[in-house]
Computed example of a mutant assay.
Amino acid sequence: MTAPNATPVETLSFEAARDELVRVVAELEQGAPTLEHSLALWERGEALAARCEEWLLGAKRRLEATRPEASDDADEDES
Rank of each mutant, 00 (worst) to 15 (best):
T2G: 10
A3R: 13
A3Y: 07
N5I: 04
N5W: 01
A6Q: 08
T7S: 05
T7D: 05
L12V: 09
S13F: 04
F14S: 05
E15I: 05
A16S: 09
R18D: 06
L21E: 03
V22C: 02
R23E: 11
V25E: 10
V25D: 10
L28P: 09
E29V: 12
A32R: 15
P33C: 02
T34I: 01
E36V: 12
H37L: 15
H37R: 13
H37F: 07
S38K: 14
L39I: 15
L39Q: 11
L39A: 11
L41V: 09
E43H: 10
E43T: 10
G45P: 06
G45Q: 00
E46M: 11
A47H: 03
A47L: 08
A49I: 00
A49P: 01
A50K: 09
E53C: 08
E53K: 09
E54L: 08
E54A: 10
W55P: 00
L56P: 01
L56E: 14
L56D: 05
L57P: 02
G58F: 01
K60Q: 09
K60M: 06
K60S: 08
R61E: 14
R62I: 07
L63Q: 06
E64P: 00
R67F: 03
P68Q: 08
D72R: 15
A74D: 13
D75I: 15
D77M: 14
